[in-house]
Amino acid sequence: MLWDVDLDVPTGTLVGIVGPNGAGKSTLIKAILQLVPVLAGEIRVFGQPYEKQRSRIGYVPQRESVDWDFPVNALDVVTMGLYGKIGWFRPVRARHRQKALQALDRVGLAELATRQISQLSGGQQQRVFLARALVQEADLYLMDEPFAAVDAATESAIVQILKDLRKQGKTALVVHHDLQTVAEYFDYVILINGRVVAHGPTPTTFSPENLHKTYGGKLSLLEEVAQQLREKR
């Protein structure tokens, strides 16, 4: 349950969504995608209701949300990003696979296109999901913890792609866990704990006071950071 969300996100920025576990970060993203019911209020994407803008939104779900044992290869998964554009009942064609392969190449996995997805490392799986969103050619990207438990190579690849997206004038909302890198990666930040505690440009909003307000109820900020450092190791 997430309360009191009242925010506008400027286009063309990289937005970090930050908050403790169970704060409603994923819920915010799922609410935009209408995967969870919005009990009150409305969400507008580029000034219009979600249904009209669906094709302009790319989605990267949490990696654990699917069964990686599924009998498909990396290229199949990336091609799924095009299913919406292809539409009901129409088959996937060679040009769609070509496009998907280009997206795989962009995340550095072109050689692993035909590999079954359980044979990929966690970081590679995350990049496959990213490629699937890229192939959607969206204007707004919603990413649910793309940096969770990935290797350094994947992390820098994702950061590079985020920067490329910003250069193209795209917007990305990214659920993020690592407080250490927030200032480095994101221009804009949304702090959440059951409600939106603060939001605004990172330099002014990502302040010790706001962080204390966000995390204070559960753990002191220092403890939280220390714990995350431990988890990282």
């Binding site: 799922k30 995967l35 669906r54 094709s55 989605y59 779900p61 949300s65 799924m80 990003g81 919406g84």
Partner: peptide
């Protein structure tokens, strides 16, 4: 494979 993504793409 991915129910929520299926919903997401319409």
């Amino acid at each position: 494979f991915d129910e929520s993504f299926a919903k997401g793409v319409g």
